[in-house]
Design a protein around this nucleic acid. Structure first.
Lengths: 222, 222
DNA sequence: GTAGGTCTTGACCATACGGTCAGGAAAAGA
DNA sequence: TCTTTTCCTGACCGTATGGTCAAGACCTAC
């Protein structure tokens, strides 16, 4: 193949099937290992074993451990931001915020490893994605805060601080992934069942929505 | 000094002043380094530098890195559990839960490093404090859940799931420590002021208390 | 003062880790 | 089939790390 053609291919983002499959396998293994051991505790050998290939092959696809880690974190961030869709296309405050809570709980359930990697990255001062925090995340946050403020102005919800409402949603939903081990231990050592997940989602949504006055007060109270 | 006297001294917990001071200095440095770099990323050299002593001296007081780490985690856990006092000596549900939220927010503010170490430990599967989770934490949790259930039965708060209420409190309050860097970034890169901390605490307490029906619905709403 | 303990520390060691590389296998064009 | 490119991998390397140790400094009780 001519050099020019190869470059065009890469530029067009059309890599070999092999390359795509291998990169995905490595990224999946890396996500798990980084989540379970942290960046410092993770080793290329562990990731290679989990991906079922020799260590040298990892360095063929990803130059350094940092590169691999960065790709993992970027993937998570993308998923994280995408959950915002439920926020925007909502009819009212209860649907918007409730849908967002549900979406984030679903992420915690489906991508526990990714959530942990993200948490770890932020906890350690966001050494590799500080720029994302300052641009994408800041912009996203300001947009949602405006949306919440609009709902407040319209009288749909109580006059809470939109910022702290967002933090509470993030914290609570991600807790079910990041502290999943603790939750499991407190659940007789067993992972949450479908029914228990449903109960968790409903509890979280109910308390928060009622907390911001988007639901009528609980019945059966004096 | 005779061997017997020395042993009595140690048994009585009365070590040398020097020993106590050094151990404290090392523990403080270790807490910070473990929080910022994770267990795997932390090095004994870094901790030694931060504590202002040569690395070999660390190993004189703490046999291994694991020992040192375990001591740090145990210290945190103690603080963590002690916050429960506000829970027990409360006149009613609003005071009990509100006080607990306030206490946990204060911990997040005063011990951000410890909170991060704890979060990191649990996120990675609690390799060194699994026994604590299964004994002390489980017992503590069950006790508080009973207290909450009693408040529900007495009609003081709505019929929420006590377990998920506790998780929400833990998640939200610890978020201000564990994700402090993200919060700071979203606060124009500046740490929260006293006033902002006050607003955060009030927001959290208000939303949660109203969410469980321990506060009257927000005023000024249709 | 001095004996017997505690504390300090530079030098050292074995290991494990991230990363490299050369050379071969496999696939993709021509 | 022959050539070119991509993919694979065992062996290897320099370095950083956790941990050791022996020798000395420093206290403290008598």
């Amino acid at each position: 193949m001519e050099e020019a053609v190869r470059k065009m291919r890469i530029k067009a983002g059309r890599r070999t099937d092999i390359r795509r499959a291998r990169e995905e396998a490595i990224l999946a293994a890396a996500e798990k290992v980084f989540a379970e051991a942290g960046f410092g505790g993770a080793t290329m050998q562990l990731i290679a074993d989990m991906a079922g290939m020799p260590k040298a092959n990892l360095h063929y696809y990803f130059a350094t451990k940092e590169d691999l880690y960065r790709r993992v974190v970027e993937n998570i961030f993308t998923i994280w931001l995408k959950a915002a869709d439920c926020f925007d296309n909502a009819a009212d405050a209860a649907a918007g915020i409730g849908g967002y809570i549900e979406a984030k709980m679903e992420i915690s359930r489906r991508h526990p490893f990714g959530s942990k990697v993200w948490a770890s990255e932020v906890m350690h001062g966001a050494p590799v994605i500080q720029d994302y925090l300052e641009t994408a995340l800041r912009g996203w946050t300001e947009g949602r805060m405006r949306a919440i403020q609009r709902w407040i102005d319209e009288g749909q919800i109580a006059a809470v601080d939109p910022r702290h409402l967002l933090y509470m949603i993030w914290a609570t939903t991600q807790h079910y992934a990041d502290f999943g081990h603790q939750i499991e231990t407190l659940n007789a050592g067993k992972p949450l069942t479908d029914r228990q997940w449903r109960a968790a989602i409903d509890s979280v949504r109910e308390i928060i929505l009622r907390g911001i006055g988007a639901l009528p007060p609980a019945p059966g109270k004096p």
